[in-house]
């Protein structure tokens, strides 16, 4: 199995990343407010412009590209709020992350592993 803590296995949300993608995260966070979700439903382009998203971020939102949004620095807890506003659960987002068909993906959950930290040296410590 893949044990790396690097993309695409893991998108570690760091402070530096947050600073770089702050506007995207602010946009996504605010989906917790009903009035923001309503504005998104009515005029998504105006809302995205108000939050000063970049052209690339806007395109990712239009495409419902959840993986792309997280890869662009969106914290996944924020990005799933946008997904929820368009009727997709965090499991749908998970399927997107894995590039999997949703109906097949949900049958495979959870993905069980049995390794322990003491198993790591042979497996992955060298790679870090």
């Amino acid at each position: 199995m893949d044990l790396s803590l690097e993309a695409p296995s893991v998108y570690l949300f760091t402070g530096e990343l947050c600073t770089r993608s702050y506007k995207l995260n602010r946009f996504a966070f605010d989906f917790k407010y009903p009035q923001v979700r309503e504005r998104f439903a009515n005029d998504p382009e105006a809302l995205m412009t108000d939050y000063a998203l970049t052209d690339n971020e806007k395109a990712l939102v239009r495409a419902r590209d959840w993986t792309g949004l997280v890869a662009a620095g969106g914290n996944h807890f924020n990005i799933i709020k946008i997904a929820a506003a368009v009727g997709e659960s965090h499991l749908h987002v998970g399927a997107h992350m894995c590039g999997a068909n949703w109906d097949e993906f949900k049958q495979t959950l959870p993905h069980r592993v049995e390794i322990m930290p003491s198993d790591l040296p042979a497996l992955a410590k060298g790679k870090r």
Binding site: D2, A7, P8, S9, V10, Y11, V70, H76, H90, V93, G94, M97, C98, G99, T108, L109, P110, H111, R112, V113, E114, I115, M116
Partner: peptide, 13 residues
């Protein structure tokens, strides 16, 4: 709950 390791669990751990 993100990335391609979405859904990883480890009962042994």
């Amino acid at each position: 709950i993100h990335g391609t390791k979405f859904g990883l669990t480890n009962e042994k751990w």
